[in-house]
Simulated assay, not measured.
Amino acid sequence: MRGVCYRSSKFRHVYGKPASKEKCYDCVPITCSVHDNHFCAVNPHFIAVVTECAGGGAFLVIPIHQTGKLDPHYPRVCGHRGNVLDIKWSPFDDFVIASCSEDATVKIWDIPKHLLTRNITSARKELLGHARRVGLIEWHPTASNIIFSTAGAKHAGK
């Protein structure tokens, strides 16, 4: 055939293999309430995972190299009165994370540089102003300490 060009992939003979159990995260309770967003966020030091929590919303912050089975009583970051819907690490500080929730708030959290030994319940900053659940947050990529948040609009009608 004239004019037909086939390009072979340089990845044709690359095969993956599953990681061993010691290099995986096991028994991490993942939330069922995050529908439109991601349930986790990762930076060079930590993996954060939104989880279920009685009486409010919470998420786990696990050091990236702490793999294996997670203790069921592992400390959480908890301080929202509703389910956590989104979490994002600051692009300027690997020890600062933001969360938003069904309770119409955005919270900024300081994460200690060492292993979490107890629940973190007080945020560095609580941002108020939304009338409905806050479903999405995003840090400004080039300006420090600026965060975008969006909430559901009120529906007109009966």
Rank of each mutant, 00 (worst) to 15 (best):
A98F: 06
R81C: 11
H73R: 14
T51Q: 09
D26N: 14
H65K: 15
T67M: 06
I30G: 00
I120R: 09
A104Y: 10
I108N: 02
H65D: 09
P75L: 07
D26W: 14
L60G: 00
A41V: 07
V77N: 01
N83Q: 10
G55A: 06
Y25C: 01
A19E: 07
L116G: 07
F59H: 05
T105Q: 04
P91Y: 04
D36H: 12
D94R: 14
I62P: 02
V77K: 03
L116S: 07
T117Y: 01
T117H: 13
F59Y: 13
P75Y: 08
P63Q: 05
Q66S: 08
A104W: 11
V42Y: 08
V49M: 04
S99V: 05
A19L: 15
V61L: 04
A54N: 14
C27P: 13
I30Q: 06
D93Q: 13
D94L: 11
A19F: 14
K113A: 07
G57D: 00
P63H: 06
C100F: 02
A19W: 15
T67Q: 11
D94W: 12
W109N: 01
I47P: 11
K23W: 12
I30S: 05
H114L: 11
E102C: 03
K21H: 08
I47A: 03
C78G: 05
R118K: 15
C78D: 00
G82W: 08
F39T: 09
K21V: 11
P91I: 11
Y74D: 01
K23Q: 10
L115V: 09
E22I: 13
N37M: 13
V84N: 05
C100A: 05
L116F: 08
P63V: 02
G57N: 01
F39R: 10
S33I: 11
V28S: 02
C40P: 14
I120V: 12
D36M: 12
K88I: 08
K88G: 09
L85P: 07
L116C: 06
N37V: 08
V34A: 00
A19H: 15
L85I: 08
V61Q: 00
C27N: 15
K88W: 03
D36K: 13
F92T: 07
I64H: 08
V28H: 06
S101A: 07
E102I: 06
D110P: 11
